[in-house]
Nucleic acid binder design. Structure first.
Length: 457
RNA sequence: GGUGGCGUGUCCGAGUGGCCUAAGGAGCACGCCUCGAAAGCGUGUGAGGGUUAACGCCCUCCGCGGGUUCAAAUCCCGCCGCCACCGCCA
C-alpha cells in the first residue's frame, strides 16, 4: 500500500480504511514521476527552495531507484501473467476437446508469481511513501527562505489614528461580545463563547461572506466535519501533519475519522476519484465550517483572545480549474477575498509568501493580513493558494482534454474568505472610538441590528 | 445497531467455474442515406499501468480487500455502500 496515512506515527490503517494511491484507479505520485525522470534538475532546484538540498538529492535518488525497480518488476509480472493466461486457455480448450486434463501450473510456479507480486507491493509502498513526503514544487516567482523572505506586494488603506488603543480582548470583554472564561470552563484552554451581540457580529460576518460568494458564482456547501483519512491525505495534511488534527478513537469510530482543520479538506475530498466535466471548469465552490486544530494556543501577546484557538470559524472558497485557467483564478480569488476586507473598511496588506513559509502542498501562497492596532502588526485573515496539480494527483481528480481522450489532472486553488476569528478582533480594534464603543461596519449593520457596539448593551 | 436483499461499462441489463478477450439495448461520436432532418444502416465508444520514436503489443480493473482453483464477474471469508423492515434517536 502506498502512502499510509500517518505511517509510523500511531495511525493505523483500518480495513477499508484510508485508500491509498495503489487503491485508487490512478497510479500516480504527488509530483509527476515523468518530470522527475525527464528533468530531475528542475525538480531538485525547485524543491531546494523549501528543503535541504542534500536531503532533496537523497530523496530523489531513492525515488528513482524504486521507480526503476517497480518497472522491472511490472515487466516481469506481466510476462508471467501472460504466459499463465495462455496456459489456462490451452488447458480449457484441451478439456473441451476431451484430451488430457493435466494440471498445468505447479505449486512452485504459483508461489513464484505471488512472491514477485508481494515484492512489487513492497516497492510501490516505499515509493509512494517517499513520494508523498515530498512537498509541492514552489512556483517560479516564489523565493526560497522562511517568514523573513515574505514580501509585501500591496497595501490597502491607512492605519486608523487611535489615541488610546484598547486591545480586542479588553474591548470584547467590556462590550460583552466574547466570554473567554466560560469558554474555557466548557472546552478547556483554547475555546471561547461568542455571546449576545458578539455572536450576532460573528454570524453576520459569516452570512455576509456567504451572500458575496454566492453572488460571485461559488456553490455553497455545508460538508461533514468528520472526514475519512483519504480526504486528509488528498489535501496534503497527512501523513506529515497527522498529529495536528483531532482524531476520533477507534472505539467510537472504527474508521478513525478526524475533525477537519479547514473545509478545504472537505471540498477537495468531495471530488476524489472523479473526472470532472471539462465544460464545467472552473468549478467554484465554498464551504462554511468551524475548523478544529490541535496547535497550541499561543500565550504570545499577539495571539490572545480569539486569534488562535482549537476551534474557529472560517469560510473557504475553492476552485478546480484547467491548468491554463489557474493564474486567472488565483487573481480572481485574491481580489474577491480582498473585496470583503475592503468592504468592511479595514486596513490590510497582501504578502507573497516565501517557499518555506507557505504550506507544503502549495506552489504559491499569498496572505491577506489585517492591521491590528494593539500590537502594531498585521495578522493573516486569509491565505489564498494555488496547488497546481499536487492535490489533484493525491485525490485523483481529472478532466478530459477537449478533443482528445487523454485525462489530465485539474489544478486546485483555495482561499480563506475569511477567517472570522482574526477579523473580529481587527474590527473591534480598528473601529474603536474614544468612548470605548465600536462602530459596526456599514455592510453588517442590518445583520447585527445596530450601528454601534456600546458597553451598556 | 439488528435482519434480509442488492452492488456488472456513461445508463439499463444478461451472465452461478473455462471460446467472458463481458451478450443485448439505450445514450453519445463519426460515416452512409437525405434538399435538410428523423428513421434506417454501418463503425466506434471506460479507467490505470508496462513497453515503444511512433503504429502497436501486453497487464490490471465486474463495489473494495483477501482466499480457493490450472482457470473467478461467477465459489468462500472480511469490509464498504445502497434499499427494505425492526430498534434507537435530535
Amino acid at each position: 500500500m502506498i502512502g499510509r496515512a500517518g505511517d509510523g506515527r500511531g495511525a493505523t490503517v483500518a480495513s477499508g480504511g484510508p485508500r491509498t494511491l495503489s487503491g485508487r484507479s490512478v497510479q500516480a505520485g504527488m509530483l509527476d514521476m515523468e518530470l522527475i525522470r525527464k528533468d530531475r534538475e528542475a525538480v531538485a532546484t525547485a524543491l531546494a527552495k523549501r528543503m535541504d538540498p542534500a536531503e532533496v538529492g537523497h530523496a530523489l535518488d531513492e525515488i528513482q531507484r524504486l521507480d526503476q525497480e517497480r518497472r522491472a518488476l511490472i515487466t516481469e509480472i506481466d510476462a508471467e501473467r501472460q504466459r499463465r493466461k495462455a496456459e489456462a486457455r490451452a488447458y480449457a480448450a484441451a478439456k473441451r476437446a476431451g484430451t488430457a486434463p493435466e494440471v498445468s501450473a505447479s505449486e512452485a510456479e504459483r508461489k513464484q508469481l505471488a512472491e514477485l507480486e508481494s515484492q512489487l507491493d513492497e516497492v510501490q509502498a516505499r515509493l509512494g511513501d517517499r513520494m508523498s513526503e515530498l512537498p509541492n514544487l514552489p512556483s517560479e516567482d516564489v523565493v526560497a527562505g522562511g517568514k523573513e523572505a515574505n514580501r509585501v506586494v500591496k497595501t490597502f488603506g491607512q492605519p486608523p489614528v487611535i489615541e488610546k488603543v484598547r486591545d480586542h480582548v479588553e474591548l470584547s470583554r467590556s462590550l460583552g461580545l466574547v466570554d473567554y472564561d466560560r469558554g474555557v470552563k466548557l472546552g478547556g484552554s483554547g475555546f471561547w463563547i461568542y455571546t449576545g451581540i458578539g455572536a450576532r457580529l460573528e454570524w453576520a460576518l459569516i452570512n455576509w461572506f456567504i451572500d458575496r460568494h454566492v453572488a460571485a458564482g461559488y456553490e455553497f456547501l455545508l460538508p461533514p466535519h468528520l472526514l475519512l483519512d483519504t480526504a486528509g491525505f488528498a489535501a496534503g495534511q497527512f501523513p506529515k501533519f497527522y498529529d495536528d488534527v483531532y482524531h476520533l478513537d477507534r472505539e467510537s469510530a472504527p474508521r478513525g475519522q478526524f475533525l477537519l482543520p479547514t473545509s478545504e479538506t472537505a471540498i477537495l475530498g468531495a471530488y476524489q476519484d472523479e473526472i470532472l466535466e471539462t465544460g464545467k471548469l472552473p468549478l467554484k465552490a465554498f464551504a462554511y465550517t468551524p475548523c478544529y486544530r490541535r496547535e497550541s494556543a499561543g500565550s504570545h501577546s499577539d495571539e490572545r483572545g480569539t486569534v488562535r484557538g482549537h476551534q474557529f470559524n472560517k469560510v473557504e472558497i475553492f476552485q478546480f480549474t484547467l491548468p491554463e485557467q489557474a493564474d486567472a483564478a488565483l487573481e480572481e480569488m485574491l481580489a474577491h477575498a480582498e473585496s470583503l476586507v475592503e468592504g468592511l473598511g479595514l486596513h490590510y496588506q497582501r504578502s507573497l509568501l516565501a517557499a518555506g513559509d507557505s504550506s507544503a502542498s502549495m506552489k504559491k501562497t499569498l496572505d491577506i493580513e489585517v492591521w491590528m492596532p494593539s500590537t502594531g502588526k498585521y495578522k493573516e485573515v486569509s491565505s489564498v493558494s494555488w496547488a497546481g496539480d499536487y492535490q489533484a494527483r493525491r485525490a485523483a481528480i481529472r478532466y478530459r482534454e477537449p478533443g482528445g481522450k487523454q485525462t489530465r489532472f485539474v489544478h486546485t486553488l483555495n482561499g480563506s474568505a475569511l477567517a472570522t476569528s482574526r477579523l473580529f478582533p481587527a474590527i473591534l480594534e480598528q473601529f474603536q472610538q474614544p468612548d470605548g464603543s465600536v462602530l459596526v461596519p456599514e455592510v453588517l449593520r442590518d445583520r447585527v441590528g445596530t450601528d454601534r457596539l456600546t458597553p451598556g448593551r
